[in-house]
């Protein structure tokens, strides 16, 4: 299958503030979040990104969604460069993370129309998509309620529906079940399977090994900003459970990492 997403040696470092330096007892002025990362995601597959906190998963996904720019390297998303054609990239992806919030003053109904408009959907298509997605996630009953008055689960469902308002072929999920109750989390993971069945390409960052084992075709493990293993889930697991293999890799690479 052709690679729909090609990440090419992206690197990103963040400048540490004086306060961060003090807290972390370091004299370094830069922290490398992503270090020459390369991987490819094929069309129609679910690719899992695993890694401890601070490994660089979120930074990688923010770079792919063009929210931030890499210091070096590039990535092609459906043939479009994240550096040269960021707007075209954003038109092709849906990005969902628990960090991105909906404005609480508005209703899901208005926000869906607003984001559909930003994605340049014509009103007829937007209306049909809204009806289908709101019904799928059980939001229609609350579509006229201000986001502030929705439960956290309903907010996340509304966020999910709005993030894919434009029916993108590529969906990027950064820990989409974080902080959700089991019922809402199940809705999200079920929908991931539906997206896959519909031929969509998904990148999923998560801490939940069982989710990766159940849903992902391939997985990449990131530690300290570097990809330390990549391939099919069985291939990466190498005869162990994915969780045991992850900790084995983590201990090995943490010991090797320069201090």
């Amino acid at each position: 299958m052709p690679a729909l997403i090609e990440v090419q040696k992206i690197t990103k470092a963040f400048r540490l503030s004086a306060k961060q330096k003090r807290i972390e007892h370091t004299q370094q002025t830069l922290r490398v979040a992503v270090d020459g990362l390369s991987f490819a995601v094929e069309s129609g597959e679910i690719f899992g990104l695993l890694g401890p906190n601070g490994a660089g998963k979120t930074t990688t996904l923010r770079i792919l969604s063009t929210l931030i720019k890499p210091d070096s390297g590039d990535a092609l998303v459906d043939g479009k460069s994240i550096i040269r054609e960021p707007e075209a990239v954003r038109a092709r992806i849906g990005f969902l993370t628990s960090e991105l919030k909906l404005e609480e003053f508005f209703t899901p109904d208005y926000l869906f129309d607003f984001f559909a408009s930003l994605h340049r959907l014509d009103p007829g298509t937007a209306s049909r998509r809204k009806a289908a997605l709101f019904e799928r996630f059980g939001i229609d009953e609350f579509s006229g309620t201000k986001v502030a008055n929705l439960s956290s689960g309903m907010k996340q469902k509304a966020s999910l529906a709005i993030s894919i308002a434009h029916d993108p072929n590529i969906v990027i999920f950064d820990e989409p079940t974080n902080g959700l109750d089991v019922i809402t989390a199940k809705t999200v993971t079920d929908y991931l399977e539906e997206l896959c069945a519909a031929g969509k390409t998904v990148i999923l960052s998560t801490h939940i090994f069982s989710l990766v084992e159940k849903l992902c075709h391939r997985v990449g493990i990131i530690i300290d900003g570097r990809l330390v293993a990549s391939g099919g889930v069985a291939e990466v697991s190498d005869g162990l459970s994915l969780e045991d293999r992850f900790f084995e890799l983590y201990v090995k690479h943490s010991a090797e990492a320069p201090r």
């Binding site: 969604s65 063009t66 929210l67 707007e87 075209a88 954003r90 038109a91 992806i93 990005f95 960090e99 991105l100 919030k101 909906l102 404005e103 609480e104 984001f115 930003l118 994605h119 340049r120 966020s159 709005i162 993030s163």
Partner: peptide, 15 residues
């Protein structure tokens, strides 16, 4: 909007 995290939601659109 920055404080509430809603501006980033807009920034991931083609706007």
């Amino acid at each position: 909007e920055k404080e509430r995290g809603t501006i980033a939601t807009i920034l991931v659109t083609p706007l």
